[in-house]
Design a protein around this nucleic acid. Sequence first.
DNA 1: GTCTATATCCAGATAGAC
DNA 2: GTCTATCTGGATATAGAC
Lengths: 202, 202
Amino acid sequence: MVAHPTRDRRAERREATRAEILDAAWELARIHGLAGISLREVARRIGIQPPTLYWYFDSKNAIYDAMFAEANRQLLQLIAEQEWPTEPREMLRMAARVWVAFSTEDVARYQLMFQRSIPDFEPSPEAYAVALEILQTMRVDFAAAGISDPAHLDLWTAVVAGLAAQQTSNQPGGDRWLRLTDEAADMFADHVLGTTTQESQR
Amino acid sequence: MVAHPTRDRRAERREATRAEILDAAWELARIHGLAGISLREVARRIGIQPPTLYWYFDSKNAIYDAMFAEANRQLLQLIAEQEWPTEPREMLRMAARVWVAFSTEDVARYQLMFQRSIPDFEPSPEAYAVALEILQTMRVDFAAAGISDPAHLDLWTAVVAGLAAQQTSNQPGGDRWLRLTDEAADMFADHVLGTTTQESQR
DNA sequence: GTCTATATCCAGATAGAC
DNA sequence: GTCTATCTGGATATAGAC
């Protein structure tokens, strides 16, 4: 029989190194673009030899996959920790602000999550499950605000995706589209809720 | 003295080969992604040896630059050949349809024009001039429709860019966002023109 | 104009010793 | 777990003959 301590120090150490690898990969993605991550340079940055990476990840795509899952978990948590207004228009404003801010604050992360930037990369089912959970959360929140038409949800994602896309590709680091977030949310609210919604709630 | 015929057959031949090179590059971009263009394979496809490409283009980025200019010229021409309605709401609907259709019909072209997908590529001033001409055309048309606030133009580009972005990255080849184009244009029209515009025009 | 030969450099991944 | 050594294949670009 082997001992079974409650804390597996070896597994903890392994997870810590995996996290180091991912951090280095994110850093390189921010510098050289998502496709510009080189395993040699990842290894160099954390002080190991390139082949050693393969003890922690099966392939380069496995690293992208872990990054994809991590990014989605970050967004899921960000959504969870907000205090969501119940008033529909306020909720939409906040949703737009949260999403656009998250998207623009790290272009590489945005590209990995929302653009299909790496040709041969497809997220694994486990990683994609987190993304689906985010969508599901959104569906519930929007239904509570009286928005349940799937086409309206698609229109919403287009509006916020457009703000983020324009901001990141035309003026990364600026706020030219960022500052239109509230106006865009209002425009959408007027369209799907009708302009009389606020009065009719009295 | 040398003869100066009105047709320079040598220059024509050269232009034809340049066009062949660009066509092959576009084809590869559609298959392997924009970054996946390999000069070896471009050469192989048109039946020359890789170094020969350098007689036609100075570098790989020069090829991207020519592609960028070509793509923008295509959009400029597409805009020019439409019969634009003078009624603002109809004009917006058509503008959205033209732009979104153009963006989604070739993902590689879309990435080259509107996403900064190739890290080290910056369009040359000459190539970028065509892109600016498109923007200028749009500004004039929108002003004629009574839309001159720069923030409203930015909001517009975000809306149409969002539709294209969602369509190309989530469902390339489909029409889930494509079919929301008219509704999105109307939503924008309601917002910037006011709902009374149609009546007040009588 | 097009070629061959080559320079230079980089990539991801594997084998197997320790 | 980490290493060295290596495989295999790719890339863009240049030199210089013809």
